[in-house]
Every structure is written in C-alpha cells, then in structure tokens.
Design a protein around this nucleic acid. Structure first.
Lengths: 101, 101
DNA sequence: ACTATATATAGACGATTATCTATATAGATA
DNA sequence: TATCTATATAGATAATCGTCTATATATAGT
C-alpha cells in the first residue's frame, strides 16, 4: 500500500466522519431524492445540509441532477464499493506490505 | 438506521480519516508489531506515532499488549469487519429506512 | 543505584471543520 | 416584470485535530 493511496482514502473517510452525512447516505441508498425531502428528516438548517451534500458530491460518493427548481441527489454505489474494497484490502495480510520491506 | 448508531460510526470513520493511521492498519494486517518497528516505516516523530496508536486503540481498531520494554499492537479484525458491514448496510436499500417514514 | 531504551503524556500551535445567519441565484408562475 | 420556491454561497465563530518539542514513566541491564 503506497502512501498516496492512503492519503486519497483518508480524505474519503473524512467525508464519512460526520453522522449527518452517514444518515444522508443511508437515505439515498433507497433511491434518488431531492434536497427538500432530505431536509425534512434532519434538524439542521438548509445551508448546513447544502454544505454536507457538496462535501459528499465533491468526494464522488453522491451525484446530483438538476430538474427545474429541484436538485436530486443519488448514491454512487461504485464509489461505496471501492471504499469497502479498500477496507478489505488493508485489513488482510498481503505479500508486498510495507512491513516486509 | 438511528442517529445514535451513525454518531458512533462517524467517530470510527474519523479515526480512519488519517493517512498515517490507514498505513498503520495496513501494516498490522500482517500481524502483531511493536511500536519501534512501526516507527521505522514512517517519517513522523515517536510521540506522533504514539498519539495515532492511542487513537486507534481507544476506538477498538487495534489492541495492545506489553512485554518488557516493548508494546505490541495488533489489528482487531472483528472491528474492521463491523465497519465493513456497516458500510454495506447503509449502501443498500432497506425497508425501515428513515426516508420511508 | 545508575544508565539506556521503549513508550507515553503534556502543552502549544496552526489548520481544518461543522454550524449558523445573511444573502445570492435560478427557475417557475402569475 | 414581480414574486415565490428551491438551493447554493459567503463569511463568521467555536471546536477539533495533527504535529511538534519537552518531559515523564517503566523496564532491563550493568
């Protein structure tokens, strides 16, 4: 595992290190949803939610689509699987580990 | 998914949101290792490494064992699997999601 | 007892972050 | 064009975090 890849993934985990964002991911796993629908489920202000959605979108964990006045957000399953794969990888023994050099 | 569980997991992801800690996990996946051996592989000071190991241990991701002058750290596979399971869970559609209430 | 080695703790500093209020933008409708 | 609704952006503030230097602790060997 090279340093660079760990730096990349650390940024992704930073995105996941907020409970509101985890709940948003949980909600979006059920399908696409617009911002105002998401907002209903939280006790945060609209700009705060907007901030969290931006953080999620910038990281690639969610994608967005505009339709009239509404913005729909959707979970990027491929990205989530990538994160899971990474965790599997660093959790398991491997031949070319830095520890063996 | 209840708020409380997300708060718990967000803390775990905060622990994972540092590249040095991810590299430590990667190294420990190959087996138990003492602090001085880990230190050799990094460009950080000994107190900084000590800090990271404490963060990892406090979260339950690693466990430690003292033997004479040496402290050995080991990855807690059960905890890593728990994290992976959680990511699977929030990534997939479910019947009792908050979005359906 | 003294020294050396391995590791942890304390305290400081600069950077980043989550949240808020206030405001801007952009599309829809009257 | 004026207004309403949905969403984003700007800027401020308080809290948290990673890293460092300095120091403490604990064990082993002389």
């Amino acid at each position: 595992m090279d340093k660079k890849r760990c730096v990349e993934k650390a940024e992704i985990f930073k995105v996941l290190s907020d409970s509101n964002r985890l709940q948003i991911i949980d909600m979006l796993s059920c399908g696409e949803m617009c911002v105002c629908k998401i907002l209903e489920k939280f006790n945060i202000t609209q700009p705060t939610l907007s901030h969290h959605l931006k953080v999620l979108a910038d990281s690639g964990i969610v994608t967005s689509r505009k339709e009239g006045n509404w913005n729909y957000y959707k979970l990027n399953d491929k990205k989530m699987n990538e994160i899971i794969e990474f965790l599997h990888f660093i959790s398991n023994d491997k031949k070319d580990c830095i520890c063996k050099k």
